[in-house]
Design a protein around this nucleic acid. Structure first.
Length: 572
RNA sequence: CGGGGUGUGGCGUAGCUGGCUAACGCACGUGCUUUGGGAGCACGAGAUCGCGGGUUCGAAUCCCGCCGCCCCGACCA
């Protein structure tokens, strides 16, 4: 592709809106443009990268037996009503009506459509297992998009769906995807860490997320450098300290003015935060009021809390008046005297004697509170967030906390969708069984941005060869004055073109100054920069620069061509 | 949805305590010169100052409303 014809432009100045490095570079180098909040166009260069990423994914999903197809973006709401998601999912799901006033949705994912196709097509166990997948646009009306392509509202996702006779089949499909994903991210030069993840309310039996470490990541990962343990903080079950045994002492009410936070309380009493019990208050989607108690030196983990009480739907923080209505005092709260509340206590709190807890009276706390004696929890289970330095559940070493961006996920769905939609097959036993599904996603645009995050320098993007839009960037310097330069550059370009589409290169034939061309070449980030100039010809041919290392050498046109896999024609 | 910003040619900005004809750098067009690290000179084109009201003799500038975008938080199948 001749740069003089390419639909793009580079920017000298950083766009003021772009905070993340990948976003800034992709805008400046002319790979993407923003249309609205969380809505982007991929310009020809960006589109080529996306297609190369897709091709890597396609090859690996094909390799585990995936069959590529395509499902629609717009769905009749009926399907989503059947699965229940029409009612469960909030405003993230875009709903609208067509001209006949039929409810429609923009797809968040395609489980419903797959289940619908299964009930149409699959009759017998002989037709299973099957894996189908597609690359398709999703629209999720996120309340807040950010970070350029990292978190958007409209995006292309590779989503595959495994369809099996039973859970053993699902386990096998899941394992295949796990391995395929590992190969995909390796080929894409992305260091994606598989972490155990929450299965959520889908009732599935297992889930992993593939995470790329990045300070801007919105998930917190719990990692052990000693043994490789990795989990999303949502589910990480780390070790907890063993409290020193003490006799349970009598409860004592003490005045503690202006101590609505654990820090202020601990400071006022001159105690460690680990001698306090922290109460937080939530309301479940089905209207239950929940008091969660963790020790003062921990934070509540809402995912664990949701799982502990089997809440369907969301948990939201309780309002002050709701807390009082259940017999507790915000800032000075404890379950002692609580009414109509589900009391969930962290296991460590249950083992810790003589804690300071709220007296449910402004300005007062209670000393020597002991779980079981002073109040009775409904549930005792781990509901605390792992902290940096906590013991690794696998090896006992210290865990670290890092932020991660989720680039892929694999999920054992089970039979929720197929049961809801009646997607069954007739088994060998002559009985009808629901088909067992798994779903597996990779966000193409997010992967693209994450690659740039990890493969760049102060001059621009440094594409890994596997995803670079073009293998090389040919720069002709002084072609306007020197016929030999023009001829050599054209000859190289013709050789690349003749070698087939997969050998196509970028050819900067613009009438620009050398500085502009070289700066743009580094900004755009092709793996190899070939420079033809009077100087290079005098030195024996073409200057070959490896973008990643900056190493340069002079090679003859013929050698360059053979190394790039082209056959070069004779000199005119 | 809360908090904080911001909106002026394609990009980055100045002007914003009310006053000339809206300014500057880059980019863009034409011509000449230049040519291995974001060239120089000359001429030129390009802006309903986010939108709608209001105050005023006069509004980019002040007031009200709305919208867009960015960041932090809440949220996130």
């Amino acid at each position: 592709m001749r740069l003089s014809k390419l639909f793009f432009t580079t920017l000298r100045d950083d766009p003021s809106e772009a905070e993340m490095a990948s976003h800034r570079l992709l805008l400046r180098a002319g790979y993407v443009r923003q249309l609205g909040s969380g809505i982007y166009s991929l310009l020809p260069l960006g589109f080529r990268v996306a297609k190369r990423i897709e091709q890597v994914i396609r090859e690996e999903i094909d390799r585990i037996g995936g069959q590529e197809m395509e499902m629609p973006v717009v769905h009749p709401a009926e399907l989503w009503k059947e699965s229940g998601r029409w009612y469960k999912v909030g405003p993230q799901l875009v709903r609208f009506r067509d001209r006949a006033e039929r409810d429609m949705v923009l797809a968040l994912t395609h489980e419903e459509v797959v289940a619908d196709l299964l009930r149409d097509i699959v009759r017998s166990y002989r037709q299973l297992p099957v894996i189908v997948y597609h690359f398709q646009t999703k629209f999720r009306d996120e309340p807040r998009s950010r970070g350029g392509l990292i978190r958007v509202r409209e995006f292309v996702m590779k989503d595959s769906y495994s369809c099996d006779r039973d859970f053993a089949g699902l386990d096998a499909a899941y394992e295949k995807h796990y391995e395929a994903y590992s190969r995909i991210f390796e080929r894409l030069s992305l260091r994606a860490i598989p972490v155990g993840a929450d299965v959520g309310m889908m009732g599935g039996t297992g889930a992993h997320e593939f995470m790329v470490l990045n300070p801007a990541g919105e998930d917190t990962l719990v990692l052990c450098e000693a043994c490789g343990y990795a989990a999303n903080q949502q589910i990480a079950a780390v070790g907890k300290p063993v409290p020193v045994a003490e006799e349970a002492l009598p409860v004592e009410e003490i005045e503690t003015p202006d101590t609505t936070t654990i820090d202020s309380l601990a400071a006022f009493l001159g105690l460690g935060r680990d001698r306090t019990a922290k109460a937080t208050f939530f309301v479940t989607g089905d209207g239950r009021f929940v008091v969660a108690i963790v020790r003062g030196d921990y934070d509540v983990n809402e995912t664990k809390l949701v799982n502990a009480i089997g809440a369907t739907g969301d948990l939201r923080p309780a309002q002050l008046e709701e807390i009082r209505a259940h017999g507790m005092e915000p800032g000075y709260g404890s379950p002692i005297g609580a009414r109509d509340a589900v009391v969930v206590v962290d296991d460590l709190v249950a083992r810790s004697p003589n804690l300071v807890a709220g007296a449910n009276r402004p300005g007062w706390h209670l000393r020597n509170v002991n779980v079981g004696r002073d109040f009775s929890p409904d549930v005792v289970v781990d509901i605390a967030n792992a902290r940096e330095g906590d013991p690794c559940p696998e090896c006992g070493g210290s865990v670290i906390l890092r932020n991660g961006i989720e680039v892929g996920n694999i999920f054992k769905l089970g039979t929720d969708y197929t049961s809801a939609l009646g997607a069954t097959y007739l088994g060998e036993d002559g009985e009808r069984h629901p088909i067992v599904m798994g779903s597996y996603g990779i966000g193409v645009g997010r992967v693209l941005a994450c690659i740039v995050e990890d493969h760049r320098d102060e001059k621009g993007i440094v594409w890994p060869p596997a995803v670079a839009p073009y293998a090389a960037h040919l720069v002709a310097i002084g072609a306007g004055r020197d016929a030999a330069v023009a001829e050599a550059a054209e000859r190289l370009y013709a050789a690349a073109c003749a070698a087939g589409p997969e050998h196509e290169i970028l050819y900067d034939d613009r009438d620009e100054s050398p500085g502009v061309k070289l700066t743009d070449a580094e900004l755009l980030g092709m793996p190899t920069i070939l420079t033809v100039s009077p100087r290079s010809l005098a030195a024996g041919g073409v200057e070959v620069r490896v973008r990643a290392t900056g190493a340069t050498s002079i090679k003859s046109l013929e050698l360059v061509a053979s190394e790039m896999g082209w056959s070069i024609g004779p000199q005119d």
